[in-house]
Computed example of a mutant assay.
Amino acid sequence: TEANKGTARFAEGEQIPVTGYGTAQRKTMPKPLYTEATLLAAMETCGRNITDEKAKEAMKELGIGTPATRAAIITTLFKRDYIERSGKALVPTEKGLYIYEAVKDMQVANVELTGSWEKTLLQIEQHTLETRSFMHSIESFTSQVTREVLGLKFPAPKQHSLPCPKCGTGKVMIRPKVAKCDNLDCGLLVFRKVLNKELNEQHLEQLFSSGATKLIKGFKGKKGNSFDAAVAFDDEFNVTLAFPDKKRGKKR
């Protein structure tokens, strides 16, 4: 028929010569990193990914937190240095990865447990389960989680140190929020956040070795104006901003 024109037809057992072949190499791509927006969405819909069908049904309209608390949960992750920003993406810190590895197999990290509780509460509502049974399971859960969490042992934080430019004898200890000389008589203290910028390891090394960082772009003033500056020590080792000499480099 007209509709079958150009359609290949084969008979069972027929041998067809292969005129050419090739191979192609491909790599699987990891899932994209979360942004704050996509993480909020994932927290809202996490119940859809539960494997237990009964728990999934009980939790299908639920998620991690509530619309009023999810943003605060992410803020807490930042405050406790579990995650940090890389552009718009959220990436786990070394501390965050350690916590994940430590608790991922514990009951406290079991998302499906929330679904099972919702299922149990529904049974209580329908008068097919006694409240006492549910409370007994909660007591057992609390006891187990407490034992697991109290049994965690955290490694000592790694501390990077630099020679102190002020006293010449102490070591400046680099911590997440500050850099401080370990010589109590010195008192040199540098907060890592200057206006809207966080000084990284390279900035601190430049500051303590030469007295000033290289030019840092994108500072924000109190009125929202953007400017570039270096972070430097004054004569008394207080942190100040140093501005580039605009006249330098101009032809006369």
Results as ranks from 00 to 15, higher is better:
Glu101Met: 08
Ser86Gln: 15
Leu150Lys: 06
Asn183Lys: 13
Val108Phe: 03
Glu94Arg: 01
Asn200Lys: 04
Thr131Phe: 07
Asn110Phe: 10
Cys186Pro: 03
Gln144Ser: 13
Pro92Gly: 10
His160Trp: 10
Ile124Glu: 05
Val172Lys: 01
Phe78Lys: 01
Gly151Ala: 14
Cys164His: 10
Gly65Cys: 08
Ile83Arg: 06
Ile99Thr: 14
Ile73Lys: 07
Phe154Ala: 09
Ala89Arg: 14
Ile124Ala: 12
Lys60Phe: 14
Arg132Ala: 12
Lys180Pro: 03
Ile64Thr: 01
Val172Leu: 07
Ser137Ala: 12
Lys88Ile: 06
Lys79Arg: 14
Ser137Glu: 11
Arg132His: 08
Ser86Thr: 07
Gln123Asn: 14
Val111Gly: 01
Ile73Ser: 00
Glu139Asn: 10
Phe134Thr: 03
Pro165Met: 06
Glu94Val: 02
Thr93His: 02
Met173Tyr: 09
Ser161Gln: 11
Pro67Asn: 01
Val149Ile: 14
Lys56Val: 04
Ala102Glu: 04
Ile138Pro: 03
Val194Trp: 11
Ala68Ile: 01
Ser161Ile: 05
Gln107Leu: 13
Leu162Lys: 11
Pro155Arg: 09
Pro67Ser: 03
Thr146Lys: 11
Ile74Gln: 04
Leu113Tyr: 15
Gly168Pro: 00
Gly170Pro: 06
Lys177Ala: 09
Pro155His: 14
His127Gly: 14
Pro165Glu: 05
Leu121Asp: 12
Lys119Gln: 07
Gln123Phe: 03
Asn183Cys: 00
Asp105Thr: 13
Ile124Cys: 12
Lys56His: 05
Ser140Met: 04
Val178Asp: 08
Asp81Glu: 10
Asp81Gly: 00
Val172Phe: 12
Asn196Trp: 05
Glu84His: 03
Phe154Thr: 06
Leu188Ser: 08
Cys164Leu: 09
Ser140Gly: 03
Gln202Lys: 15
Ala156His: 10
Ala58Met: 08
Ala55Gly: 00
Thr75Arg: 03
Gly187Thr: 07
